[in-house]
């Protein structure tokens, strides 16, 4: 374990009405680590992300990021500290071209000054960022309206929006869902490149095969509780995990 974890979640609880969405969740995340968060549907993965990014307030518990307690802060403050996330349901601004969608994160106070503010500066940065995630510049994909782009590109746009914030921790909420194998295969190198740049990443995934190939560590959630934690293939051997996954299917 790294001496000072980048993110430390301790005894997190969240109740929605009477339902316990997250029950006593604790884990540490070292700098530069890629953590996979898996679990059956409704096991509280997305809620965990929402709690970390402040979109939902925890009922109880602490989230320490970079030595600061961020639980209960509004999302915009948390994101300014360097946590970026993608959403499972992508909702771009459909009437705008893809690169104009990037203006919003580039306007963020976190990166605003570094990008430059003269007319058109942000457009140029946006096009560069989009090229990095695979919007072919020669084919002018970035200029197409978001409403005509296929799901694969929308997911990449979502990823580019997170990268644009120059975060230290990126949380990817089911980035691969709804994508074809080829599309997933083309996004994996982007994630690996982010790791090389030293970013810390949390990935929520249902595509376990792809996840296990790149993740350092896996946490399995079920009914809001952590039921297993460990290296990629080890966790699937655990009885509790088998029961949760197979039991849910049976």
């Amino acid at each position: 374990m790294h001496p000072s974890p980048l993110l430390k979640v301790a005894g997190l609880y969240k109740n929605f009405g009477g339902v316990q969405a997250i029950h006593d969740l604790s884990f540490d995340l070292a700098r530069g680590e890629l953590l996979g968060l898996i679990g059956p549907n409704g096991s509280g993965k997305t809620t965990a992300v929402n709690l970390i990014t402040g979109f939902v307030k925890p009922t109880e518990g602490n989230i320490i990021y970079n030595g600061q307690n961020i639980s209960g802060l509004p999302p915009y403050k948390i994101i300014r500290m360097g946590i970026a996330r993608t959403f499972q349901m992508v909702k771009p601004f459909y009437q705008l071209p893809a690169y104009k969608n990037m203006i919003i994160p580039l306007y963020s106070p976190r990166v605003k000054k570094r990008v430059g503010g003269k007319y058109g500066d942000r457009d140029a940065v946006a096009l560069d960022l989009l090229e990095e995630v695979g919007f072919e510049r020669d084919a002018f994909v970035a200029y197409k309206s978001a409403s005509v782009l296929p799901q694969g590109y929308l997911k990449r746009l979502e990823l580019a929006k997170a990268i644009a914030l120059q975060p230290d921790l990126i949380i990817l909420d089911e980035l691969f869902s709804g994508l074809s194998l080829a599309e997933v295969a083309s996004i994996v190198p982007i994630i690996e490149k982010l790791r090389l740049e030293g970013k810390t990443i949390i990935m929520i995934e249902h595509r376990l095969k792809e996840l296990f190939r790149i993740a350092d560590r896996i946490i399995v959630l079920n009914y809001g509780e952590k039921i297993a934690e460990g290296f990629s293939n080890e966790v699937m051997e655990s009885d509790a995990v088998k029961k949760a996954y197979l039991g849910a299917e049976a």
Partner: peptide
């Protein structure tokens, strides 16, 4: 301008704007 774009984006999807670290 980009500022106006942020304002319009708040109308369409405030969650996404918040997710850019912008105080809606």
């Amino acid at each position: 301008s980009d500022y106006g774009l942020v304002l319009k984006a708040i109308r369409d999807n405030d969650r996404s704007v918040m997710n850019a670290g912008i105080n809606v």
